[in-house]
Simulated scan of single mutants.
Amino acid sequence: MEKIAIITDSTADLDVKYAEENNIIILPFRIIYKDREYRDNIDIKAQEVYDNIKVEIPTSSLPSMADIEDAFNKFTEEGYTHVIAVTLSTGLSGINNAIKLVSENFPELTTTVFDSRSISEGEGYIVKEVRRMIDEGKSYEEIVDTLPKIRSSIKIFFIVDTLEYLVKGGRIGKVTGAIGTILNLKPIICVGEDGKYFTYDKVRGKKQAVKRIHELAIESLKAGKELGIYDGNGKVDADKLYEELKSWCSDNKVGTVRRAGSISPVAGVHSGPGLIAIAIVDK
């Protein structure tokens, strides 16, 4: 009989209690300062990163190989036969390959390491869908075959106060790094089908950027899609956007919107403060 384990990483932004209750192992990325190192969202919280970011911009590294090996040893000891790992986009990180390398040392476990080609709410949504399908009694093969379709149903759009941190962290993707300084142009950044960031649109100023995100959200809600709003040290603007969209949904009785949480500390390292994002799911 199949027994399927789930593993992901800390950029999926899963609620810790939810993960514990659903037997999902979260591998923490590392946040590295000159004189100290932290496990993402365990030893350090996002606000601590933002509070320190003007003093020192930390770097990041993958979850340790020991953490990954410990997870697979646990799966073996607990009688699991299959493993589904959902990871941060390979366009942004090498975590997918690291898990694949470790899984090769556990041939007794049939393992799929799935590239979410996403981050935060997008990655986390896929993990939750895997859990739901396991609970419904779907087979390993059925779940694995369904994952690409789930991935293709997700779109992520976000804005940041400045591209400085994406540039320094090497996460700029296809977003033009020179945008904005003189003309105050703000890119609306999307996660592409290749899992890399690209400029979806450009507007002038933060206010217009938030307005454009609002327009994209309304377009999606009119189409009956689900919407999640999250932030990275942009709580005030994200809360305001949520309240506006919730009111719109109530009046028009179309689509659903929810206020998700904040991005992980390690994601905050690379985005910097002021991120506002929407995750759109086409059910």
Rank of each mutant, 00 (worst) to 15 (best):
K138T: 00
S139F: 03
E142W: 01
I143R: 00
V144C: 01
D145K: 00
D145N: 07
L147C: 03
L147K: 02
K149S: 10
I150R: 00
I150L: 00
S152D: 07
I154R: 02
F157P: 04
F157I: 06
V167T: 13
G170N: 08
R171L: 12
I172H: 08
I172N: 10
I172G: 10
G173L: 01
K174S: 05
T176D: 15
G177C: 11
A178C: 09
T181N: 14
T181G: 12
I182A: 13
N184Q: 12
N184A: 08
L185N: 04
L185W: 05
K186F: 09
P187A: 01
I188V: 10
C190L: 07
C190E: 15
C190G: 12
V191M: 06
V191Y: 02
G195C: 01
K196H: 04
Y197R: 04
Y197Q: 05
T199K: 07
T199G: 01
Y200T: 05
Y200F: 05
D201E: 10
V203I: 05
R204G: 03
R204P: 06
G205Y: 12
G205H: 13
K206V: 12
K206L: 13
Q208W: 10
K211D: 13
K211T: 11
R212M: 10
I213P: 01
I213E: 04
E215K: 15
I218E: 14
I218L: 14
S220R: 08
S220E: 10
S220M: 09
L221P: 07
A223G: 11
A223S: 14
E226C: 12
E226M: 13
E226Y: 11
L227K: 06
G228D: 07
I229P: 09
I229S: 10
D231E: 15
D231R: 07
D231Q: 15
V236K: 14
A238P: 11
D239L: 15
K240C: 11
K240S: 15
L241G: 10
Y242W: 09
E244W: 00
E244I: 01
K246P: 10
D251V: 07
D251Q: 15
N252H: 12
V254H: 14
G255M: 04
T256V: 13
V257C: 08
I263E: 02
S264V: 11
V269F: 06
S271A: 12
S271T: 14
G272N: 04
G274S: 02
